[in-house]
Simulated assay, not measured.
Amino acid sequence: MFHLTALVTCLATLMYLLFSFQVGKAREAYGVKAPAISGNPDFERVFRVHMNTLEWLPIFLPALWLFAIYISDAIAAALGVVWIVGRVLYMTGYAKAANKRGPGFAIQGGAAIILWLGATGAILWRLIHP
């Protein structure tokens, strides 16, 4: 069973949901009426965090689950938590200023790449060594 990876998946989904609430709050705070997605740089940064997270989820989630299946539930979950922490740091940094998004982005990107490389390597290993 993959209980830890399932829990991290739920946490990542919750994080994404909370980011969507941040966009709603930013719309109100900066007077950006739906469906507009521009007009205030402070709003636009919060909006981009939400959209960038959506862009990364299709990379992160399959890599997370394949890593859990082919390597380890516990290690996948730990790397998943690192990814979530990176996304939160990305959000808090980017919400302040565009040039403060780098560390969080690097952390989450590194975690996703490790998950993908590990999963891909394990799958190839099993194909070559049945």
Rank of each mutant, 00 (worst) to 15 (best):
R101P: 08
P62Q: 04
V49I: 13
L66K: 01
A98D: 11
L115E: 07
V82C: 14
T53E: 03
L117Y: 00
Y70I: 02
Y90T: 06
V82G: 13
N99C: 04
I59A: 13
V82E: 03
W56L: 05
L115K: 04
I69W: 12
A97N: 14
G110V: 02
R87E: 02
L54N: 04
A119R: 14
L57V: 08
W83E: 00
S72Q: 04
N99P: 04
G109E: 03
G104V: 02
M91A: 13
P62S: 12
A78F: 05
I59Y: 09
L64Y: 12
A63S: 15
L79Q: 06
G86S: 07
G86W: 11
Y90G: 05
A97R: 15
N52Q: 08
Y70L: 13
I75P: 00
L66Q: 01
T92F: 10
W116N: 05
I114M: 11
A106T: 15
F67L: 05
M51W: 09
I59E: 03
R87M: 07
I113W: 10
G80L: 11
A98N: 10
N52D: 05
G110Q: 01
A76F: 08
M51D: 04
A97E: 15
Q108K: 03
I84K: 01
N52F: 12
A63T: 01
H50C: 07
I71W: 03
A63F: 02
I75Q: 09
K96R: 15
L61M: 15
G102L: 14
A74K: 07
A76V: 01
K100C: 08
K100F: 07
A63N: 05
V85H: 10
L57K: 02
P103D: 11
I84H: 00
G93Q: 02
A76H: 02
R48L: 06
M91S: 04
E55A: 13
H50W: 10
I59R: 02
I69F: 12
G86K: 07
G104W: 03
K100N: 07
A95P: 04
T92K: 11
